[in-house]
């Protein structure tokens, strides 16, 4: 789908706008005192990441991101905020702010140096990177059946494990909050 788009200035401009918006929302999530506003910024960040998935030819994943994260997880978090609201104190930072900022910056610097220093083009096919590989566009533009096939063939055991995990989580969450009755 994007073989004609991926290298254009429009693609670059859209990418930078999305990246700045996503990072700005993420900063608001960790800085805002009002948790409801922080949750709104979190939704913005999730939507920006969903748009980035579309730019990576992962449209199905973008839809899952909007449904599960921007829909379910954020509503769950907002319910949680409303149930346990600690109105007197808000959510101030603890005494670790400066060491944590240093640790995060150091980690970012290390990852950035490693990423920019690696010749990624040696790993894969140069044709794939520009999206012109034979038949690749067909797979990307019609991905839900292919993903379903992968889930039920190669990844059927992880799929069952995920189902077991979700069941155990559901039972565990109910058992935890049910209280003594």
């Amino acid at each position: 789908m994007t073989e004609g788009i991926a290298g254009t200035p429009v693609f670059t401009a859209v990418w930078w706008v999305l990246a700045v918006l996503t990072v700005a929302c993420a900063v608001l999530v960790v800085r805002l005192q009002d948790l409801v506003k922080a949750a709104m910024a979190l939704i913005g960040s999730f939507l920006g990441i969903a748009a980035l998935f579309v730019m990576l030819n992962a449209e199905f994943l973008a839809i899952v991101q909007v449904l599960v994260y921007a829909g379910a997880v954020s509503i769950l978090l907002i319910f949680g905020i409303m149930m346990v609201r600690d109105t007197q104190r808000g959510s101030q930072a603890n005494s670790l702010a400066i060491p944590a900022a240093m640790l995060a910056t150091a980690m970012l610097a290390i990852i950035a140096v490693v990423v920019l220093d690696t010749r990624w083009d040696l790993l894969g096919d140069a044709a794939l990177a520009t999206g012109v590989a034979e038949g690749a566009e067909g797979v990307y533009s019609d991905s839900p059946p292919a993903i379903g096939g992968l889930l039920l063939r190669e990844f059927v055991l992880p799929l069952q494990a995920a189902a077991l995990l979700l069941t155990a989580t559901l039972v565990g969450a109910i058992a935890l909050v049910r209280g003594d009755q």
Partner: peptide
Amino acid sequence: FLVLSAVLFSIGLYGALTRKNAIA
């Protein structure tokens, strides 16, 4: 994309270490 991912990860790490509220 990888550097953007690293930036988001660092911001999240900072938040996870400094926030006092468990939901944050």
